[in-house]
Amino acid sequence: MNIFLVPYTWQRHLQVALITGAAGLLAWWFVMSWFTFFGPFWSLEWDGALFLATCSGMIGGAAVLAEGSLRRRALPSRLALTLTAAGISFGVGFAGYWLWTFALGPALFGAVPDSIDSALVSLRYRLGGFVIAGLGSALGPLVTRKFKGGVTQLLSGAAAGLFGGAVWHLCNFTIYYDLYLASALGAFTWGFGYGVLAWGIPDELYAGWLRVLSPSRYGLRIPVDAMDRSPKERFVGHFPRGLDVWLNAEGQVMELHLSVAVDGEQHYKARGLTLQPTVVRRFLERIDLRYDPRRPAPLETRLSSGDRVVLGQGDQATTLEFIMLPREER
Protein backbone atom coordinates (compact mmCIF):
# COMPACT_ATOMS: atom_id res chain seq x y z
CA MET A 1 0.00 0.00 0.00
CA ASN A 2 1.11 3.49 -0.72
CA ILE A 3 -0.44 6.56 0.82
CA PHE A 4 0.23 8.46 -2.41
CA LEU A 5 -2.30 6.25 -4.15
CA VAL A 6 -4.95 6.88 -1.55
CA PRO A 7 -6.62 10.24 -2.09
CA TYR A 8 -8.42 11.90 0.75
CA THR A 9 -11.94 10.77 -0.13
CA TRP A 10 -14.39 8.48 1.60
CA GLN A 11 -12.97 5.66 -0.50
CA ARG A 12 -9.75 5.77 1.48
CA HIS A 13 -11.55 3.90 4.26
CA LEU A 14 -11.93 0.90 1.96
CA GLN A 15 -8.28 0.62 1.06
CA VAL A 16 -7.14 -1.45 4.04
CA ALA A 17 -10.37 -3.42 3.83
CA LEU A 18 -9.50 -4.44 0.28
CA ILE A 19 -6.13 -5.68 1.51
CA THR A 20 -7.51 -7.57 4.50
CA GLY A 21 -10.32 -8.98 2.33
CA ALA A 22 -7.75 -10.22 -0.15
CA ALA A 23 -5.79 -11.70 2.76
CA GLY A 24 -8.88 -13.60 3.90
CA LEU A 25 -9.44 -14.89 0.40
CA LEU A 26 -5.83 -15.96 0.04
CA ALA A 27 -5.97 -17.70 3.42
CA TRP A 28 -8.96 -19.71 2.24
CA TRP A 29 -7.21 -20.50 -1.03
CA PHE A 30 -4.07 -21.58 0.73
CA VAL A 31 -5.82 -23.95 3.14
CA MET A 32 -8.14 -25.34 0.47
CA SER A 33 -5.33 -25.83 -2.03
CA TRP A 34 -3.07 -27.45 0.50
CA PHE A 35 -5.83 -29.78 1.59
CA THR A 36 -6.81 -30.68 -1.94
CA PHE A 37 -3.40 -30.92 -3.52
CA PHE A 38 -1.09 -32.18 -0.79
CA GLY A 39 -3.69 -33.66 1.51
CA PRO A 40 -4.07 -32.78 5.15
CA PHE A 41 -1.38 -33.79 7.62
CA TRP A 42 -3.89 -33.13 10.35
CA SER A 43 -7.00 -35.01 11.31
CA LEU A 44 -10.62 -34.17 10.66
CA GLU A 45 -11.12 -32.48 14.01
CA TRP A 46 -8.47 -29.90 13.18
CA ASP A 47 -9.97 -28.64 9.93
CA GLY A 48 -11.94 -25.85 11.54
CA ALA A 49 -9.18 -24.80 13.90
CA LEU A 50 -6.62 -24.54 11.12
CA PHE A 51 -8.96 -22.88 8.66
CA LEU A 52 -10.12 -20.21 11.11
CA ALA A 53 -6.65 -19.69 12.57
CA THR A 54 -5.10 -19.30 9.12
CA CYS A 55 -7.71 -16.75 8.11
CA SER A 56 -7.28 -14.96 11.42
CA GLY A 57 -3.49 -14.91 11.14
CA MET A 58 -3.42 -13.70 7.55
CA ILE A 59 -6.05 -11.01 8.11
CA GLY A 60 -4.33 -9.74 11.26
CA GLY A 61 -0.93 -9.81 9.58
CA ALA A 62 -2.23 -8.08 6.45
CA ALA A 63 -3.75 -5.28 8.52
CA VAL A 64 -0.45 -4.60 10.25
CA LEU A 65 1.50 -4.87 7.01
CA ALA A 66 -0.88 -2.39 5.39
CA GLU A 67 -0.51 0.04 8.26
CA GLY A 68 3.26 -0.32 8.20
CA SER A 69 3.28 0.43 4.48
CA LEU A 70 1.06 3.45 4.86
CA ARG A 71 3.24 4.81 7.62
CA ARG A 72 6.44 3.94 5.76
CA ARG A 73 7.92 2.00 8.61
CA ALA A 74 11.36 0.52 8.09
CA LEU A 75 11.11 -2.78 6.28
CA PRO A 76 12.56 -4.99 9.06
CA SER A 77 10.29 -3.38 11.59
CA ARG A 78 7.34 -3.71 9.25
CA LEU A 79 7.98 -7.42 8.72
CA ALA A 80 8.63 -8.09 12.39
CA LEU A 81 5.39 -6.44 13.42
CA THR A 82 3.51 -8.26 10.68
CA LEU A 83 4.80 -11.64 11.74
CA THR A 84 4.13 -10.89 15.37
CA ALA A 85 0.56 -9.84 14.66
CA ALA A 86 -0.02 -12.82 12.36
CA GLY A 87 1.36 -15.21 14.97
CA ILE A 88 -0.77 -13.79 17.74
CA SER A 89 -3.88 -13.78 15.57
CA PHE A 90 -3.22 -17.34 14.45
CA GLY A 91 -2.67 -18.52 18.01
CA VAL A 92 -5.76 -16.81 19.37
CA GLY A 93 -7.89 -18.07 16.48
CA PHE A 94 -6.55 -21.56 17.00
CA ALA A 95 -7.00 -21.64 20.74
CA GLY A 96 -10.34 -19.85 20.47
CA TYR A 97 -11.71 -22.58 18.25
CA TRP A 98 -11.09 -25.21 20.88
CA LEU A 99 -12.31 -22.93 23.63
CA TRP A 100 -15.58 -22.52 21.77
CA THR A 101 -15.90 -26.13 20.72
CA PHE A 102 -15.28 -27.73 24.07
CA ALA A 103 -16.24 -25.06 26.60
CA LEU A 104 -18.25 -22.06 25.45
CA GLY A 105 -20.35 -23.79 22.80
CA PRO A 106 -21.54 -26.65 25.00
CA ALA A 107 -22.05 -24.19 27.87
CA LEU A 108 -24.25 -21.93 25.77
CA PHE A 109 -26.10 -24.51 23.71
CA GLY A 110 -25.96 -27.49 25.99
CA ALA A 111 -23.75 -30.52 25.78
CA VAL A 112 -25.28 -31.85 22.59
CA PRO A 113 -23.12 -34.72 21.34
CA ASP A 114 -23.26 -33.27 17.86
CA SER A 115 -21.66 -30.07 19.03
CA ILE A 116 -18.33 -31.79 19.09
CA ASP A 117 -18.94 -33.68 15.87
CA SER A 118 -16.22 -32.15 13.79
CA ALA A 119 -18.13 -32.80 10.59
CA LEU A 120 -21.25 -30.95 11.70
CA VAL A 121 -21.59 -27.57 10.08
CA SER A 122 -24.70 -26.11 11.72
CA LEU A 123 -24.13 -22.42 12.31
CA ARG A 124 -25.21 -22.72 15.92
CA TYR A 125 -22.13 -24.75 16.70
CA ARG A 126 -19.76 -22.89 14.42
CA LEU A 127 -20.61 -19.22 14.74
CA GLY A 128 -18.79 -18.87 18.03
CA GLY A 129 -15.65 -20.20 16.39
CA PHE A 130 -15.87 -17.48 13.75
CA VAL A 131 -16.46 -14.77 16.35
CA ILE A 132 -13.51 -15.81 18.49
CA ALA A 133 -11.27 -16.15 15.47
CA GLY A 134 -12.46 -12.69 14.44
CA LEU A 135 -11.38 -11.41 17.83
CA GLY A 136 -8.06 -13.13 17.21
CA SER A 137 -7.64 -11.30 13.91
CA ALA A 138 -8.03 -8.02 15.82
CA LEU A 139 -5.91 -8.97 18.79
CA GLY A 140 -2.69 -9.43 16.82
CA PRO A 141 -2.76 -5.91 15.34
CA LEU A 142 -3.92 -4.55 18.68
CA VAL A 143 -0.85 -5.89 20.47
CA THR A 144 1.51 -4.51 17.84
CA ARG A 145 -0.24 -1.11 18.13
CA LYS A 146 0.29 -1.25 21.86
CA PHE A 147 -3.46 -1.55 22.48
CA LYS A 148 -4.28 1.71 20.76
CA GLY A 149 -7.96 1.71 19.78
CA GLY A 150 -8.59 -1.40 21.85
CA VAL A 151 -12.34 -1.66 22.12
CA THR A 152 -12.99 -0.58 18.53
CA GLN A 153 -10.48 -3.05 17.20
CA LEU A 154 -11.82 -5.93 19.25
CA LEU A 155 -15.44 -5.22 18.51
CA SER A 156 -14.63 -4.81 14.84
CA GLY A 157 -12.79 -8.11 14.78
CA ALA A 158 -15.63 -9.94 16.50
CA ALA A 159 -18.22 -8.34 14.22
CA ALA A 160 -16.16 -9.17 11.14
CA GLY A 161 -15.87 -12.80 12.27
CA LEU A 162 -19.62 -12.81 12.82
CA PHE A 163 -20.24 -11.44 9.32
CA GLY A 164 -17.84 -13.96 7.84
CA GLY A 165 -19.57 -16.83 9.62
CA ALA A 166 -22.98 -15.55 8.56
CA VAL A 167 -21.98 -15.28 4.92
CA TRP A 168 -20.35 -18.71 5.09
CA HIS A 169 -23.56 -20.15 6.45
CA LEU A 170 -25.98 -18.25 4.22
CA CYS A 171 -24.14 -19.12 1.04
CA ASN A 172 -23.84 -22.73 2.00
CA PHE A 173 -27.23 -23.48 3.44
CA THR A 174 -29.71 -20.74 2.70
CA ILE A 175 -29.05 -18.99 -0.58
CA TYR A 176 -27.47 -21.94 -2.28
CA TYR A 177 -25.55 -25.05 -1.38
CA ASP A 178 -21.96 -24.49 -2.30
CA LEU A 179 -19.41 -24.73 0.42
CA TYR A 180 -16.66 -23.97 -2.05
CA LEU A 181 -17.82 -20.45 -2.78
CA ALA A 182 -19.36 -20.07 0.65
CA SER A 183 -16.04 -20.59 2.38
CA ALA A 184 -14.31 -18.23 -0.06
CA LEU A 185 -16.92 -15.52 0.43
CA GLY A 186 -16.96 -16.07 4.18
CA ALA A 187 -13.21 -15.58 4.45
CA PHE A 188 -13.31 -12.53 2.19
CA THR A 189 -16.21 -10.95 4.08
CA TRP A 190 -14.43 -11.49 7.36
CA GLY A 191 -11.28 -9.77 6.12
CA PHE A 192 -13.13 -7.00 4.33
CA GLY A 193 -15.44 -6.40 7.27
CA TYR A 194 -12.55 -6.13 9.65
CA GLY A 195 -10.78 -3.67 7.36
CA VAL A 196 -13.87 -1.50 6.98
CA LEU A 197 -14.79 -1.49 10.64
CA ALA A 198 -11.35 -1.15 12.18
CA TRP A 199 -9.12 0.39 9.57
CA GLY A 200 -10.32 3.69 8.23
CA ILE A 201 -7.15 5.49 7.19
CA PRO A 202 -6.51 8.13 9.90
CA ASP A 203 -6.45 11.83 9.05
CA GLU A 204 -3.05 12.16 10.68
CA LEU A 205 -1.53 10.65 7.54
CA TYR A 206 -2.73 13.66 5.59
CA ALA A 207 -2.05 17.37 5.79
CA GLY A 208 -4.06 20.32 4.50
CA TRP A 209 -2.56 22.30 1.64
CA LEU A 210 -3.35 25.61 0.03
CA ARG A 211 -2.92 25.57 -3.71
CA VAL A 212 -3.29 28.37 -6.22
CA LEU A 213 -5.63 27.73 -9.13
CA SER A 214 -5.41 31.10 -10.79
CA PRO A 215 -3.16 31.58 -13.79
CA SER A 216 -0.91 33.87 -11.86
CA ARG A 217 1.30 31.60 -9.76
CA TYR A 218 -0.75 28.57 -10.77
CA GLY A 219 0.12 25.42 -8.88
CA LEU A 220 1.92 27.12 -6.03
CA ARG A 221 1.08 25.25 -2.86
CA ILE A 222 1.98 25.23 0.80
CA PRO A 223 1.09 22.89 3.66
CA VAL A 224 -1.04 24.32 6.40
CA ASP A 225 0.09 21.89 9.10
CA ALA A 226 3.22 22.28 11.15
CA MET A 227 5.74 19.47 11.08
CA ASP A 228 5.11 18.69 14.73
CA ARG A 229 1.35 18.77 14.21
CA SER A 230 0.95 21.70 16.52
CA PRO A 231 -1.67 24.36 15.74
CA LYS A 232 -0.61 26.68 12.98
CA GLU A 233 -1.95 29.49 10.84
CA ARG A 234 -0.99 30.43 7.27
CA PHE A 235 -1.53 33.86 5.70
CA VAL A 236 -2.31 34.76 2.13
CA GLY A 237 -1.78 38.25 0.67
CA HIS A 238 0.81 40.50 -0.92
CA PHE A 239 2.31 42.35 2.01
CA PRO A 240 5.69 43.34 0.73
CA ARG A 241 7.62 41.66 3.51
CA GLY A 242 6.15 38.39 2.49
CA LEU A 243 3.43 36.05 3.69
CA ASP A 244 2.97 32.28 3.58
CA VAL A 245 1.38 32.64 0.16
CA TRP A 246 2.37 35.70 -1.73
CA LEU A 247 -0.07 36.69 -4.47
CA ASN A 248 -0.19 39.60 -6.83
CA ALA A 249 -2.23 42.66 -5.92
CA GLU A 250 -3.42 42.74 -9.55
CA GLY A 251 -5.38 39.63 -8.80
CA GLN A 252 -7.41 41.66 -6.33
CA VAL A 253 -5.59 40.10 -3.43
CA MET A 254 -5.24 42.40 -0.49
CA GLU A 255 -2.13 42.80 1.55
CA LEU A 256 -3.40 40.54 4.28
CA HIS A 257 -6.36 38.79 2.74
CA LEU A 258 -6.96 35.39 4.25
CA SER A 259 -5.65 33.08 6.89
CA VAL A 260 -6.03 29.30 7.11
CA ALA A 261 -5.56 27.76 10.53
CA VAL A 262 -5.35 24.22 11.83
CA ASP A 263 -5.90 23.32 15.47
CA GLY A 264 -4.53 20.45 17.52
CA GLU A 265 -7.31 18.16 16.37
CA GLN A 266 -6.58 18.78 12.71
CA HIS A 267 -9.64 20.92 12.05
CA TYR A 268 -9.08 23.54 9.39
CA LYS A 269 -10.61 27.01 9.27
CA ALA A 270 -10.47 29.90 6.83
CA ARG A 271 -10.66 33.46 8.16
CA GLY A 272 -11.39 36.53 6.08
CA LEU A 273 -9.00 39.37 6.91
CA THR A 274 -10.06 42.08 4.46
CA LEU A 275 -13.06 44.15 3.44
CA GLN A 276 -12.65 42.91 -0.12
CA PRO A 277 -14.71 39.96 -1.35
CA THR A 278 -13.52 36.65 0.12
CA VAL A 279 -15.76 33.67 -0.62
CA VAL A 280 -15.39 30.02 0.30
CA ARG A 281 -17.12 27.83 -2.25
CA ARG A 282 -18.10 24.25 -1.86
CA PHE A 283 -20.90 22.08 -3.24
CA LEU A 284 -24.20 24.02 -2.97
CA GLU A 285 -22.65 26.46 -0.52
CA ARG A 286 -20.95 29.87 -0.64
CA ILE A 287 -19.68 31.60 2.47
CA ASP A 288 -18.72 35.26 2.35
CA LEU A 289 -15.83 35.83 4.74
CA ARG A 290 -15.15 39.49 4.04
CA TYR A 291 -14.20 41.33 7.19
CA ASP A 292 -17.05 42.99 9.10
CA PRO A 293 -15.75 46.02 10.97
CA ARG A 294 -18.64 45.83 13.37
CA ARG A 295 -17.41 42.50 14.68
CA PRO A 296 -14.41 42.17 16.92
CA ALA A 297 -13.19 38.99 15.29
CA PRO A 298 -12.90 38.02 11.63
CA LEU A 299 -15.49 35.70 10.10
CA GLU A 300 -14.35 32.11 9.73
CA THR A 301 -15.58 28.83 8.37
CA ARG A 302 -14.36 25.27 8.38
CA LEU A 303 -12.47 24.00 5.40
CA SER A 304 -12.77 20.59 3.82
CA SER A 305 -10.66 19.01 1.14
CA GLY A 306 -11.77 20.37 -2.22
CA ASP A 307 -13.10 23.71 -0.98
CA ARG A 308 -12.22 26.78 -3.05
CA VAL A 309 -11.55 30.26 -1.81
CA VAL A 310 -12.13 33.12 -4.22
CA LEU A 311 -10.27 36.31 -3.38
CA GLY A 312 -11.57 39.47 -5.05
CA GLN A 313 -14.28 39.41 -7.70
CA GLY A 314 -14.91 39.48 -11.39
CA ASP A 315 -12.36 38.58 -13.98
CA GLN A 316 -9.48 39.52 -11.83
CA ALA A 317 -10.39 37.29 -8.85
CA THR A 318 -7.81 34.88 -7.57
CA THR A 319 -8.80 31.33 -6.67
CA LEU A 320 -7.20 29.06 -4.12
CA GLU A 321 -8.12 25.53 -3.26
CA PHE A 322 -7.80 23.71 0.01
CA ILE A 323 -6.80 20.10 -0.49
CA MET A 324 -5.78 17.25 1.79
CA LEU A 325 -2.67 15.48 0.55
CA PRO A 326 -0.47 12.82 2.11
CA ARG A 327 1.61 14.37 4.84
CA GLU A 328 4.67 12.88 3.19
CA GLU A 329 4.22 15.24 0.27
CA ARG A 330 6.43 17.55 2.27
Partner: peptide, 27 residues
Protein backbone atom coordinates in the same frame (compact mmCIF):
# COMPACT_ATOMS: atom_id res chain seq x y z
CA UNK B 1 -13.66 20.57 -12.60
CA UNK B 2 -10.63 22.27 -14.06
CA UNK B 3 -8.26 21.96 -11.17
CA UNK B 4 -5.48 20.18 -12.88
CA UNK B 5 -4.80 22.50 -15.79
CA UNK B 6 -3.79 26.04 -15.91
CA UNK B 7 -6.35 28.48 -17.21
CA UNK B 8 -4.94 30.74 -19.90
CA UNK B 9 -3.86 33.88 -18.09
CA UNK B 10 -5.40 37.17 -19.02
CA UNK B 11 -3.12 40.02 -19.88
CA UNK B 12 -2.17 41.59 -16.59
CA UNK B 13 -2.68 45.33 -16.25
CA UNK B 14 0.68 45.60 -14.57
CA UNK B 15 3.22 43.42 -12.79
CA UNK B 16 3.64 40.17 -14.70
CA UNK B 17 2.16 36.96 -13.43
CA UNK B 18 4.54 34.76 -11.62
CA UNK B 19 6.59 37.63 -10.46
CA UNK B 20 8.92 36.54 -7.73
CA UNK B 21 7.62 37.05 -4.23
CA UNK B 22 9.58 39.23 -1.90
CA UNK B 23 11.84 37.60 0.61
CA UNK B 24 10.01 35.55 3.21
CA UNK B 25 7.35 34.36 0.70
CA UNK B 26 5.65 31.02 0.37
CA UNK B 27 7.41 28.23 2.15
Amino acid sequence: FGRTRRVKPKAPPGGGPGAAPPAGGAG
